[in-house]
């Protein structure tokens, strides 16, 4: 049996003295999509940061493809095929589209031309705006540019943090179509999302997180009730 793409074992994480993740286990099998749902402040993004080695857990283990990676640098992880698209806009606002794409060549020392070709094939709109500063793109275009890294660098594991934030439903739908395609290509994906319905449509597994703990985990249909409870309270 091969090791799962990502395994978090009894992870705790804290900002200073304040613990925000209290012992969480997550297993993302290879070629599957795992959605982490729940209200703001539940600790989802923190957990994703721990998975991407952007943040050191206070205890617990992070295994990627069976390798213990606690303490690795995020840049080393990125070069080895872990692609994190962070919350907010994962683009360099003061760099042009082309220059943003050039930054994606660190993984496997890709050729700039190849990266551009792949990105523009997937997102023709970016091709039209190639010499524009990323900060002047619309929200949807910026998120496409951020997602271009997932498309061009052939990651083994993709970590997505609230890619829908502040975007119109149609754009969100487009982005999730893409997530579905990437999953179909065999990339393992851990995604944090507030739009529960949207995320559950593409997920193989889902977990609901609240107050730094996982309340409920299973196939999307199994956790649907727990989701609505976590967002609107039991009476909603």
């Amino acid at each position: 049996m091969t090791a799962p793409a990502l395994e978090l074992r009894d992870v705790r994480a804290a900002y200073g003295r304040i613990e925000v993740v209290h012992g969480v286990d997550v297993v993302v099998p290879r070629s599957s999509v795992f959605a982490l749902l729940g209200p703001n402040g539940a600790g989802k993004s923190t957990l994703l940061k721990v998975a991407g080695c952007q943040m050191e857990p206070t205890s617990g283990c992070v295994h990627i493809a069976g390798v213990h990676v606690n303490g690795a640098s995020p840049e080393a992880l990125a070069r080895h095929g872990v692609c994190t698209v962070p919350e907010g806009r994962g683009v360099f606002a003061n760099l042009t589209v082309t220059e943003n794409l050039r930054m994606m060549t660190y993984r496997n020392n890709l050729r700039p031309k190849d990266v551009e070709e792949r990105a523009f094939a997937r997102f023709p709109r970016l091709g039209e705006r190639r010499s524009q500063l990323a900060g002047t793109l619309s929200g949807g275009e910026q998120q496409m540019l951020a997602m271009a890294r997932a498309v061009t660098t052939e990651p083994a594991l993709l970590l997505l943090d609230e890619i829908s934030m502040g975007l119109a439903p149609r754009i969100v739908a487009e982005l999730y179509d893409l997530v579905g395609q990437l999953a179909a290509e065999g990339i393992a994906i851990l995604l944090v999302e507030q739009f529960a319905r949207t995320a559950m449509a593409v997920a193989d597994f889902a977990a609901v997180m609240a107050q730094g703990r996982i309340e409920c985990v299973g196939e999307p249909a199994d956790v649907a009730d727990a989701v609505s409870g976590a967002y609107f309270g039991e009476v909603a």
Binding site: S164, P169, V172, A173, F195, A196, R197, Y231, F232
Partner: peptide, 11 residues
């Protein structure tokens, strides 16, 4: 819709 994401067709 804003909180949970759009249901099919009601965007």
């Amino acid at each position: 819709a804003a909180y949970l994401g759009a249901e099919e067709g009601d965007a």
